[in-house]
Each structure stands twice: as structure tokens, then as C-alpha cells.
Write a protein that binds this DNA or RNA. Sequence first.
DNA 1: TCCCTAATAT
DNA 2: AATATTAGGG
Length: 313
Amino acid sequence: MGEEVKLSEYDSSGGNNDDRVLWEVGLPGADDLTPLTLQLIPAELASAFRISPESSKSMTDVNRASQNTFSSLQRWHSQDMSSMNNSNFKLFNEETTVTEKDETDLTREGSDPRKLRRVESGGTEEIESALCNENCADDSSANKTLNKRARLVWTPQLHKRFIEVVAHLGIKNAVPKTIMQLMNVEGLKRENVASHLQKYRLYMKRQGNEGPSSSDHLLNSTPVKQSLRESGESGHYLRNTNGHVGMPTQMPYPPQMVQMPMPMIGMANGGMPVGYGGGPSVGFHHQYSMMQQQREWSGNNFGYYHPVASNDK
DNA sequence: TCCCTAATAT
DNA sequence: AATATTAGGG
């Protein structure tokens, strides 16, 4: 999907297109990986829980499995590429809003220019935009008539991206338009960013001449799990308790995350951003010079969790 | 046209 | 409280 991280345009310092390479930086080396031929569950443990012991995998099993994986990846990739064809990147300016590509099915709903949208979080690094479709026909129709857009919800993931971009740009260039472009989040409007930026600046100002910048740690936090649901698709969506459907969005410019195995269960993102302050997820964001302004503002104040984007009429 | 801040509206 | 919108000035 969105791999074509085009940082394009905006002249300045920008040409780092090697995101893909960086993506691999945090990955474990072959030596760090558990051999697939290894049994994950010790025999005693297996029997204790009455788990039928998996037949141990031979190298051929492993090889066959990886071939399957590989070929399915290829299949997926080629189809993805074809659907992306030439429109590698789209600018989501005004009303056109969502268009082709991955979102397809959810996207159409056609014509209606102002879709009710919402950005919501999902997996490790997912940023999704919720969009009302058949799933909430009632209020979607209301929205059509009201002609009103749903409010954007700055989820931790979204905010994180925002922060990254701002840090990356530096105060000089961190202006709404540029930030918006770099964030590369579908449906995000300049106004959204401007508003958020305004608030962000106020927050920073406040923090600046006050005192306790102590407990700040937005950078790493984000132990969002993705576990269930394999990603394979760019078009998976989630629904939250509000009956809204999460929509997939763009790939962020930096190829974010590899999920670390965080033992967490449940919490089927009922629309709620996951816990914070948690795991030190290291690995990524080395590329940017965050760590400066970024820390000032941590989770609390700003829109961290809040379930909703009530657009409900 | 874009940006910024402050005020105001939702 | 979080976002959106508008006003007014650069």
C-alpha cells in the first residue's frame, strides 16, 4: 500500500526517500529469531494443558510454509500494485476526499462530498478514518442533509504522527499545510492541522514556562496491539462501539511499525485507544530528531482518549 | 493564498 | 474539553 512515501515537493531539506531501508533497521536479525523448526510449546506444558503436541516441523515443512507465504505476498503485492496503478499518490484536497485505492468499498458512498470522517486508531500504527456507510445509515443520511463533516479525533497515533512531522520539520517549516502534506493522512484537512497546531503551540507555550515537563513520554508509548487480524489487507476496518466503522487510511510516510509482541489480550479496540504509559517500544523513530519538543507534551491534555466523534446529529 | 492568534461556536 | 470556524492582521 502506500509505500510510495513521496515526500515530494516542498523543497527544503527533505529528500529522504530511503524509508524503506530504515524500516528494516529495527528488525531482528536472523540470529535473533526463533527457528521455525523449534517447538514453541514444551512438551510437558502442552500435555499439561492438553494441547496436542504439534508435530515437529521439519525443514521441508518450514520451507513449504515460507514459500506459501512468499507467493501469497507476491500475489497480494501485484494486485495491490495494479490497483494503485499510476496514481501512486493522491492529494486529498478539498471535497474529492476519499477516492480509489484500498478503501474502495468503504469509499464509495460516492458523490457525497463531505463524508463524515473520523480518524481513529487501530493497530500499532494504524490511523484510520471512520466513515459512515451502510453501517450507520441513519446518521449518515442526517449528515448528508446537514452537510456537516464529522470532527476529527486526534488519536494517539494521529497525534504521534503529527508530532513526528512537526519535529521533523522544525519550528520553521511546521506550518499547517506542510504538516498536513507530510502526515499524509487521508482526509486530513489543513484546517484540522491548523487547529491542532494552534492548540499544540499553546500547550507548548504553557509547558515551556511552567515547570514539570517531567512525566512526559509520548514518544515511545503506544503499545497498541494489533494482534488479531492479520494485516495483509490495506482495507480492513474496524468498528468501534459507536457503530462507526474505522477506515483504513494512508500509509504514513515513514513505514511505521513492526509490532512487538506485547502480551495483551482482549481490548478489542472498542474505539478506545489503548493504554498508555506502557511499553517502551523502541526501534523505530530513530530517523527523526524528535526528542526535542516532542517531550514537552505528553498524553494527558491533548486529545487522548475520547471515544467519540459524535456526529450523531 | 497562506499563516497566525484570539475569539467564538459546536 | 476537544475541534471547528471565523475574524482580523501580516
